[in-house]
Amino acid sequence: MSSSPEKLVYMANQIGKFFQSQGHDKAVPGIAEHIKKFWDPRMRKQIFAHLDTGGAGLDPNVLEALTTLKKA
């Protein structure tokens, strides 16, 4: 693994995989809350910047969670 944003995308997708089995409706807020609670602001800023450029590599639930988190 190299440095961000690839690493952050990887970490976000890892979180997404845990929540996946809980279904879309629980997974999206679950992922968003986890990132909000545990990622420092600079990490969130970086992943949001990546989101702004299309969010390549992010799994669908993760992409949606980050989108809602960014708006909040």
Binding site: S3, K7, K37, F38, W39, D40, P41, R42
Partner: peptide, 18 residues
């Protein structure tokens, strides 16, 4: 009020220069 960096995140941030 914002969470800080965890150890592995500190290392990444150091390499990145922040």
């Amino acid at each position: 009020p914002e969470p800080g960096l965890r150890i592995p995140n500190m290392f990444d941030a150091a390499i990145e220069g922040t």
